[in-house]
Amino acid sequence: MKKNFRKYSPGKGQRPSHEEAEGEVRAKKHLGQHFLKDEDVAEKIGDTLSYSGYKHVLEIGPGMGVLTKYILRKEIDVHVIEIDTESVAYLQEHYPQLQGKVHEKDFLKHDLSEIFGQEQFAIIGNFPYNISTQIVFKMLELRQYIPEFSGMFQKEVAQRICEKEGSKTYGILSVLVQAFYEAEYLFTVPPSVFNPPPKVDSGVLRLSRKEDFSLPCNEKLFFRVVKTAFQQRRKTLRNSLKSFDLPENIKEDSIFGQRPEQLSTTQFIELTQIIEPHAVRD
């Protein structure tokens, strides 16, 4: 699936906001809630998934269901996971088609096999900024079950996930996500379409799992190498990876003279392959 998206700009004639029509749930600061209230933006996000190659989709943090209603129009089995009791009650009252599919759980802690078993499912959502990177890390842990992932983040986080090597914003998330997924930044959303409005722009991205998403190296070591390298991103790999206690002759390879942001995902895989024979097993 390939769609073209442009930066969203609110203007005359846009549809009435969800919040204005049905503003019954109070946004809670401690949950990082900013309820999307623009129907056009919600519909655009709902269209970011292909809804093909899997039977289920999980929406994280649906709030009052402004995005949910557009997902429900697709030919897909829709589940939502929501930690806010007030939102859960609202969803159960206003979306009878979700009966038995509203899970009052913490996504970061819940065992999703209780919902989907071993079947494939996509993830979508307007993600709370305060846990958005944690959501991505859990998605990576479950990558064998998640062929597609899309949603809204703080703009700079969405851009970082999709960034390529050579950029100052390229980092751990960029490398780990792009090792397993094709990452695409889709469009930018202004604060004005939320209630309450956040202080920054938001960005919507899509991740599509690679056809072959197994790595030709020890995956656990790959994660460790990437995270260790970027902990001291200004140093060359020869210095930032000292904790691996590698033989001096190995570090003569030119790759160790580079800084982590200079390496592509493929080069990090090659680096892991070089280190693997000498790495101490956990």
Rank of each mutant, 00 (worst) to 15 (best):
M139K: 13
Q144T: 15
R281E: 12
A122G: 10
A21E: 14
D38M: 04
G32D: 07
S87I: 00
V57E: 11
T48P: 08
D201T: 09
K105F: 10
L271C: 01
S9R: 14
F222P: 08
K242P: 02
A158N: 04
L246C: 02
V189H: 07
Y185M: 02
D212N: 14
L186D: 01
R224H: 14
V193Y: 09
R234G: 06
V102T: 11
Y181K: 03
L271N: 03
S50A: 15
L140V: 05
Q14C: 03
S113G: 07
A279G: 02
S174V: 08
G53T: 12
V226A: 03
E261P: 12
F116M: 05
P197A: 11
L91Q: 13
M152E: 05
L215Y: 04
Q118G: 02
A21D: 05
E148H: 11
I131W: 12
F230E: 04
A89C: 05
S214Q: 13
D201L: 12
P10E: 02
A21P: 00
I161H: 01
C162S: 03
R143L: 10
R6P: 01
R26F: 11
H34Q: 06
F121I: 08
F121W: 05
I146R: 09
E59M: 12
Y145A: 10
Q231H: 14
N249V: 11
L246I: 10
I45Q: 01
L205P: 01
S52P: 00
E270R: 14
K3V: 00
F5A: 01
Q154N: 07
G171V: 10
N126F: 06
R6L: 14
G125H: 08
R6Q: 14
D38R: 03
